[in-house]
Design a protein around this nucleic acid. Structure first.
Lengths: 214, 214
DNA sequence: TGGCAAGCGGACGAGATCGTCCGTTTAGGC
DNA sequence: GCCTAAACGGACGATCTCGTCCGCTTGCCA
């Protein structure tokens, strides 16, 4: 790869993060190209589709999410691991502007290519939850899908209010406290059937667009 | 108002709800007109802007939100009032497809015209929270802005997963349980400075669009 | 240093949405 | 039944975005 090509690729990724943060994930491709100081053709040559651009722009964040799950499993105390996982992913959503939109946008998408790593993530989360429950710190009626519920809800919050990190921190604190095992809690409604489908908890997963219009 | 005009207006509102539910709040105006069986001019004559259409389509939901706040204040037990308020608003978000998007979309908007009713809602929420805390049911470190945090987060969840009412119910249950006063809870991070700005907790409030692109 | 292929970017055609214009239709009072 | 003004709706021009084409530039190897 020629040096100018590599340089332009990096410029495009930085411009994409900036533009997505400022104008949302649906910003015109031409805006990204202009901000990067390159022509439209160069943008399309490096990233043929918007999905590829989004995926490239937030690859590092996706990887961090994936690592966070591994770290959580490796932690000595499973409850600490779970807390760290939630806080890491939520901090990422909070800090990298544009990422929440990409995260939410990617979520409902089904990608066969990543089925394997997703299943692995699924098993990891299940194992983490069970161990945290066995340690007595996580409430026994917690369901692995509740983790998805929490992350998606938090993501929606930061997407709606990108300028209020305090709101994010309050929500995370409330949720983690309600996940904690405690004697007098009313029974919860039945768990959601959510899976990790498309959720960037694996290094390879997530990052595609679902057009709203048809 | 002529009878055919009134009939077309109703058709347009119903079509808008259906189209917004199916294709999101950004669906083309022409789609709404076609679904209603009227021409584009008729749509624009009744609702000059998309904002007006959204506002019209979800006026009933907005009113229900406003009434729910009044009901909560009027309840004998303030904690019961608060839970009813949260559950009513969340049920609305869950049941009327398109409404979550409108709710989120409307939220960051500032509308001077409704400043008065918003301030009233603000006072009502504050009063409700204080009374619930004095009754001992609501945790003392709960801040009125936490209600906004919870509602916006729930809204983001239903917007991302409109087909999973169980996820919504789980989140609501977790949040309400974590709001409940209980002896051994770690201190929360500082409250968000959120206000009710644009939040449809008053009959007149909310319902406008904020374009993402510039 | 010369040559060439990889890389670049402006321009362009296609497609979509917006909001308006204007000729036609129709409801409802007389 | 007639007449008028209100209401209708199809068509249209303007604007925007997408993705591609093609002539020009430039990094890199010999």
């Amino acid at each position: 790869m020629r040096s100018d090509a590599r340089r332009n690729r990096e410029r495009l990724l930085a411009a994409a993060r900036a533009v997505f943060a400022e104008h949302g994930i649906d910003a015109p491709m031409a805006t990204v190209a202009r901000r990067a100081g390159v022509g439209a053709a160069t943008l399309y040559r490096h990233f043929p589709t918007r999905e590829a651009l989004v995926r490239g722009a937030f690859a590092r964040q996706m990887e961090t999410c994936g690592r966070a799950l591994g770290d959580a499993l490796a932690a000595d105390d499973p409850w600490t691991g779970l807390t760290h996982l939630v806080e890491t992913v939520c901090a990422l959503q909070r800090e990298e502007r544009g990422f929440p939109a990409a995260f939410l946008d990617a979520f409902p998408e089904t990608r066969e290519e990543h089925a394997r790593s997703r299943e692995q993530a699924e098993r990891d989360v299940t194992a983490l939850v069970r161990r945290a429950q066995e340690s007595g710190a996580l409430r026994p009626d917690f369901h692995p899908s509740d983790l998805v519920v929490a992350l998606v809800a938090h993501c929606g919050l930061v997407a709606a209010l990108p300028d209020d990190p305090r709101a994010s921190r309050r929500l995370v604190a409330y949720l983690l406290q309600s996940f904690r095992a405690a004697p007098p809690t009313a029974p919860l409604p039945p768990p959601s059937g959510l899976t990790l489908r498309g959720l960037p908890l694996t290094p390879e997963g997530g990052g595609s667009r679902t057009p709203r219009r048809s």
